[in-house]
C-alpha cells in the first residue's frame, strides 16, 4: 500500500527472485528457483513448459494458493494474500469445478454472493457474463446437463463475474478436444480484445500459447525457472487463420527451440 498510485500500479504482477522449495526426505524439491517476472496491465502472458517446470506453481503463488519460500510477489501492488482478500483476480482451474447442486446461473452467482452483493445485482451480472461466453438460455440447466466445453465456459463466466483486473487460467482447456479448444481459444481471444484484462495463462500447448498471448514465458524443470521470454510480433487482433502464417510458425519455432534448450540445460545439470 506504499505504492504512490495504488489504483494504477506499474505492474499487474511483479515477481522478484521468488523460490518455492518443498522439503523432502533426501533432497528438497525446488519447484520454483529465483523466478523474475513482471506483467504489465493488459498483457496476455502464457506460461509454457514441460510438466514439473513450475508453471502451475508460479500461477498458484500469484493466486495465494501456495506461498513462496523466499523472494517477493506483488499483485496490483499488494501481497498475494491481500490481493486475494481484495478479490483482485479471477482464477480458472484445470477442471470447471462447478457445484452440481447449483444451476449454471447460481454457479456464476457464487462469487458475487460471497462478496455480499444484492441478489438482483448478482443475477443481472451473472446473466450478462453468461451471455458473453455464449451461454444465454442455459441459465437454469445443471452442470451435468452441459458438455465439458460449456462447463468450462461457465467457469470462465464465473471468474469474470466480479470484473477482476487480473484473470489467471491454469490449463483451462487442457481436458477438451481440439475442436472445442480452438473455438474456446477464439472466444477467449475475443474477450481479451474487448476488455483488455491482464491474463496469465498456463498451457503446455505451443500453438495455444502463440495464438493467445502477447508474451510467452518459457519455463524449465528441476529447478523450475524461467528460461526465456518471447514477445509476440503477431497483430493484436487475431483469428485462427493466423496459425498458418510464416510469422506464427516462426514464433512457434522459437518457443519450441527455447523448450528444447531448457531440456538441454536440465541434462547438463543432471
Amino acid at each position: 500500500m506504499n505504492d504512490p498510485e495504488p489504483t494504477a500500479p506499474d505492474h499487474a504482477v511483479l515477481v522478484r527472485r521468488a523460490s518455492v522449495v518443498y522439503p523432502a526426505a533426501d533432497a528438497p524439491v525446488r519447484a520454483l528457483h529465483e523466478v523474475d517476472l513482471a506483467i504489465a496491465p493488459g498483457e496476455f502472458v502464457a506460461l509454457i513448459g514441460p510438466s514439473g517446470c513450475g508453471k502451475t506453481t508460479l500461477l498458484r503463488v500469484i493466486a495465494d494458493l501456495e506461498s513462496i519460500t523466499s523472494g517477493e510477489v506483488l499483485v496490483n501492488g499488494l501481497s498475494p494474500h491481500d490481493a486475494r482478500l481484495a478479490r483482485a483476480y479471477g482464477y480458472v482451474f484445470q477442471s470447471p469445478a462447478l457445484f452440481p447442486w447449483r444451476t449454471v446461473l447460481a454457479n456464476v452467482m457464487l462469487p458475487l454472493q460471497i462478496q455480499g452483493r444484492k441478489p438482483e445485482q448478482c443475477k443481472a451480472v451473472a446473466m450478462e457474463q453468461l451471455g458473453r461466453v455464449g451461454l444465454a438460455g442455459f441459465e437454469l440447466k445443471y452442470p451435468w446437463q452441459l458438455s465439458g466445453g460449456m462447463q468450462q465456459r461457465v467457469s470462465i463466466a464465473r471468474a469474470l463475474g466480479f470484473e477482476p483486473r487480473l484473470l489467471m487460467m491454469d490449463e483451462p482447456f487442457g481436458a477438451l478436444d481440439e475442436i472445442t479448444r480452438d473455438r474456446l481459444n477464439e472466444q477467449l481471444q475475443g474477450l481479451w480484445q474487448r476488455e483488455k484484462r491482464t491474463v496469465v495463462f498456463v498451457t503446455h500447448s505451443i500453438a495455444e500459447a502463440v495464438y493467445l498471448s502477447t508474451r510467452i514465458v518459457v519455463m524449465s524443470p528441476r529447478p523450475g525457472r524461467v528460461t526465456k521470454q518471447i514477445v509476440s510480433t503477431l497483430p493484436e487482433v487475431r483469428h485462427l487463420g493466423l496459425r498458418d502464417t510464416s510469422e506464427f510458425i516462426a514464433i512457434a519455432h522459437e518457443v519450441r527451440e527455447a523448450l528444447h534448450a531448457g531440456h538441454g540445460a536440465d541434462a547438463d545439470e543432471g
Binding site: 478479490r87 477442471s95 469445478a97 457445484f99 454472493q113 460471497i114
Partner: peptide, 29 residues
C-alpha cells in the same frame, strides 16, 4: 468437497462460514 472446490472458495476469499454454508453443507447432503 474436493481440493479444487475448497481452493475455489479460497480464491473468492470466502469466510469459513460461507464455505460451510455454500460448499460443505450442500456437498454433505
Amino acid at each position: 468437497p474436493q481440493r479444487i472446490e475448497t481452493e475455489l472458495m479460497h480464491t473468492y476469499a470466502a469466510t469459513r462460514l460461507q464455505s460451510f454454508w455454500m460448499l460443505r453443507l450442500p456437498a454433505a447432503l
